[in-house]
């Protein structure tokens, strides 16, 4: 009897082990192997790759950039996504569905296509927006967008915004429909209602949205690859380059595993913090 649940989940467990656990373990093992220009990969156990990744300032800069970008993407997504969700939630029935579709629409379009769109708008002298602004005399040189961190942050924030909106929207759905009226009846103005009543209650939604957006931004590949190219690398594009251009698989594996570990630590730490902070209040 007790065995049935395990047996029933066995196929899923096997699949999970086959496509996630095994490659992951192999990647971890790979990061301890040696590599040379002419000898290729040598299956020995050394710490060379890890030493390099952890001590070389080149890698420090790369990881610092990755998390800096992820941080600002998260901030941008929260600052725009939370009000967006609030406005969406206050809309009347036909509009709400329509605008929800508009917001979620980008999820249906490939990340590559969307990022190329940004590149078309802002890329160098020939970018549409840059051209228009320059011919209008508003700017004298094209706005730097390609190969900048700002460009990556803006493009990633756009790509990941729906996750924040959905997360905050779910939190808003749990709000008592009369709660704002209750505060108004007690004499609160519209701004006070937002700051003292609505915001604290959707905070768990904003934080869990932030965790998702942060994790996705730090591990994003397509957008940084298109906007940053090989000039402005982040951890994921670096790992990619080590694998496919330098062919130093072990070093690439060390970068990938480190990114994974850092992300897991940040995400678990953050959700622990959120849970402890709100367990008592929202149960």
């Amino acid at each position: 009897m007790r065995l049935a649940p395990y047996l029933l989940s066995l196929p899923a467990l096997l699949l999970f082990a086959g496509v996630v656990v095994v490659p992951l373990v192999m990647t971890v093992l790979l990061s301890f192997h040696d590599w040379g220009q002419y000898k290729g990969i040598e299956p020995v156990f050394i710490l060379k790759n890890w030493q390099e990744v952890l001590t070389d300032s080149y890698f420090h800069e790369m990881f610092a950039r990755t998390f800096r970008i992820a941080f600002f993407v998260t901030l941008l997504a929260a600052v725009f996504g939370a009000p967006e969700a609030y406005i969406l939630n206050r809309m009347k029935s036909p509009w709400r569905g329509l605008f929800l579709l508009v917001i979620l629409g980008p999820l249906l379009i490939s990340v590559v296509a969307r990022t190329l769109g940004w590149a078309l708008l802002f890329g160098g002298n020939s970018g549409l927006v840059n051209k228009a602004l320059m011919s209008a005399g508003l700017i004298s040189a094209p706005l730097p967008f390609m190969f900048t961190e700002t460009g990556m942050v803006v493009a990633l924030a756009h790509v990941l915004m729906p996750y924040m909106v959905l997360s905050v929207w779910a939190a808003l759905q749990r709000l008592d429909p009369q709660i704002e009226n209750a505060a108004v009846a007690l004499g609160a103005g519209p701004f006070t209602v937002l700051r003292r009543i609505v915001l604290p209650q959707v905070m768990p939604g904003i934080l869990s949205g932030a965790i998702i957006v942060f994790a996705l931004a730090a591990s994003a590949f397509a957008t940084p690859a298109i906007i940053g190219g090989r000039r402005l690398k982040v951890a994921s594009t670096l790992a990619y380059d080590e694998f496919l251009n330098t062919l130093n698989w072990p070093l690439g594996a060390a970068v990938a595993v480190l990114l994974l570990l850092a992300l897991v630590a940040i995400v678990i730490g953050a959700s622990r913090l959120v849970e402890r902070r709100y367990a008592q209040v929202f149960g």
Binding site: D176, P177, Q178, I179, N181, A182, A183, A185, G187, I197, P200, Q201, V281, F282
Partner: peptide, 14 residues
């Protein structure tokens, strides 16, 4: 300046 008690109470949970 009216006092209102809502059917759902609408207390501030936080």
């Amino acid at each position: 300046g009216l006092g209102i008690v809502f059917q759902s109470y609408a207390l501030f949970p936080h």
